[in-house]
Design a protein around this nucleic acid. Structure first.
Length: 503
RNA sequence: GGCUCCGUAGCCAAGUGGCUAAGGCAGCGGAUUGCAAAUCCGCCAUGCGUGGGUUCAACUCCCACCGGAGCCUCCA
């Protein structure tokens, strides 16, 4: 099966073949751990996860690495080269507030002024969220989830190489800068030219900050700053690394290669972050390419509006799952479904309506799964993905630049008529779910997580009793009560059962 | 100002230079049910932002316009 993926580098869909046959080396820009991850973050992370799972289902051995940015970068790092406020200090302040308001447990971070503790706290929060949502790489911490603070010497080594190769210089302010003019193809990824970058930006470049640099687009590799909250010794003075260098360093180290197959991230990272990564990496290795494919997920909108930290209209994963955002607790499988079900290169609009739609799909899929599993005694038939008509159509759709809509159309059709043989159908479900990751996280805990299960069970018994006595108004009243409690109620010849709604 | 992208039924959302424009949700009709829910069957865009153009043929290509979004600035 030919896999075709859109490559930001060339602006077109291209045939994908890994550099080494059978093995894919893939790097995804991960979170900066100074706050809880929000649904927009996870749209991008789960896009990478879907891609990874699809490649695995295609028979490839995928090395998927996602970094944790735990260096205390500055809030204005990218444009102004290290002005603004330290992100870890911002986090510390917020943590203290959150502790007071009870949003964060009192004992969670003993000392909010210790940036390592803060980063560690939010990193584990991220990994927890990730595991709940079926983000496979989150279960591969630490070997596939490197932390920037653990690669400082390697970053310094790369900076020294860049200086030696004349790609970097120490500015008059003592800061080590990458010289974009030393790298003629700077701008290729984002469609920029050096001239446009110099002239453009609508006069938004801060003049004061530019005098020490050779070109306005030159970016920081190392900033000496003895007052910085997280700092390390270096040949250029005690300070901290630039924002971009960690990804160049860690991707090559952890993936054990200097040419990656795929590099993913959110669309906002195309410029400057990924542009800078390419320049640094190729500058240091001398290679033409840093990553062969660059893939970017478009932003998630919330009820039609862009979410941003500035606007404050963003929801963390925790807000959604706990029901704080929508008023109803949301099962992680539902949130996963909602975040993966639309094409990664289109804006996805996160809405409560979408969430209930997704809940429907998850319910149908898991109920079918439970039925099939019971019917075949939990022993699936082995399915040849390339051969079985359902999985073949599903994989074929995804092979076309991850056409998830078409793939889901296959899934919906199959749910309605899964075939005669439950063992085969269960095999199909497991094969599909290797990519979807829904059954995997919803199969067993839909009931277990219900704290009011006892009340629901007794109300169900009361309904059955009333129905037997043909007291239908009493039965209806009990049913209404269950619905108000957030249950879906069903009566059949086997009696009445109630399930907590998934969203 | 520069650079991208999008506009398909009430909503979400695929798709193709030419058979009857996927799928989901909602809605409607039916089976089922005490009534529901769930399930199953059936129906649901003569049209794909607007106006031109290319073509035997366009929703699909080109141009213009209108509307929307993103990046260039913390951000996935």
């Amino acid at each position: 099966m030919e896999i075709r993926l859109y490559n930001t580098l060339t602006n077109q869909v291209e045939r994908f073949e890994p550099l080494t046959a059978g093995r894919v080396k893939m790097y995804s820009c991960g979170p900066t751990v100074y706050d809880f991850a929000h649904v927009g973050n996870f749209r991008s992370f789960l896009f990478a996860d879907l891609l990874r799972r699809f490649l695995e289902a295609s028979g490839l051995d995928v090395w998927h690495v996602m970094n944790i940015t735990d260096v205390g970068h500055m809030t204005d790092d990218a444009v102004a080269d290290g002005t603004g406020e330290d992100k870890m200090q911002v986090a510390a302040r917020r943590l203290k507030e959150d502790k007071k308001s009870g949003k964060v447990d009192e004992g969670a971070v003993a000392n909010p002024d210790d940036p390592y503790e803060v980063a560690n706290y939010f990193m584990h929060a991220f990994l927890d969220d990730g595991r709940k949502l079926g983000l496979k790489v989150a279960s591969e911490y630490p070997h596939r989830v490197p932390k920037a603070t653990q690669f400082i010497p390697e970053m310094q080594q790369m900076i020294a190489t860049l200086i030696a190769r004349k790609h970097a210089y120490v500015g008059s302010d003592g800061v080590v800068y990458f010289s974009v003019e030393s790298f003629p193809s700077y701008g290729q990824l984002s469609g920029n030219t050096l001239e446009a970058l110099r002239v453009g930006a609508g006069g938004r470049i801060d003049i004061d900050n530019q005098s020490c640099k050779r070109h306005p687009a030159d970016f920081m590799l190392w900033k000496p700053d003895p007052k910085h909250i997280m700092k390390w010794d270096s040949p250029w003075g005690a300070g901290y690394p630039g924002w971009h260098i960690e990804c160049s360093t860690m991707s090559m180290r952890v993936l054990e290669t200097d040419v990656l197959d795929i590099h993913t991230g959110g669309e906002d990272l195309i410029f400057p972050h990924h542009e800078c990564e390419i320049a640094q990496s190729c500058g240091a290795t001398g290679n033409e390419l840093f990553s062969r494919f660059w893939m970017h997920a478009r932003f998630l909108l919330v009820e039609g509006e862009k979410m941003s930290k500035r606007k404050g209209n963003f929801f963390t994963v925790r807000d959604i799952l706990s029901g704080k955002a929508t008023g109803t607790p949301v099962h992680p499988a539902v949130l996963r479904m909602e975040l993966i079900k639309s094409h990664y290169r289109a804006h996805s609009n996160f809405t409560t309506k979408g969430l209930t739609d997704s809940a429907n799909t998850v319910r149908r899929l898991t109920e079918l799964g439970q039925r099939l599993r019971d019917a075949c005694g939990g022993v699936p038939k082995k399915i040849d993905r390339a051969d079985h008509p359902v999985t073949k159509a599903f994989m074929g759709a995804l092979a076309n630049d991850l056409n998830v809509s078409e793939a889901m159309a296959v899934v919906h059709a199959w749910i309605s008529s899964p075939g005669e043989d439950p063992a085969e159908a269960y095999g199909v479900l497991l094969a599909l779910d290797q990519v979807l990751g829904i059954w995997e996280i919803a199969a067993n805990d839909c009931q277990a997580r219900d704290p009011e299960g006892d009340i629901a069970a007794s109300l169900c018994a009361m309904i059955d009793e009333a129905r037997r006595a043909r007291d239908f108004s009493a039965a209806d009243a009990h049913r209404q009560r269950l619905i108000q409690l957030g249950y879906e109620v069903r009566s059949s010849s086997d009696g009445t059962s109630a399930k907590k709604k998934l969203a």
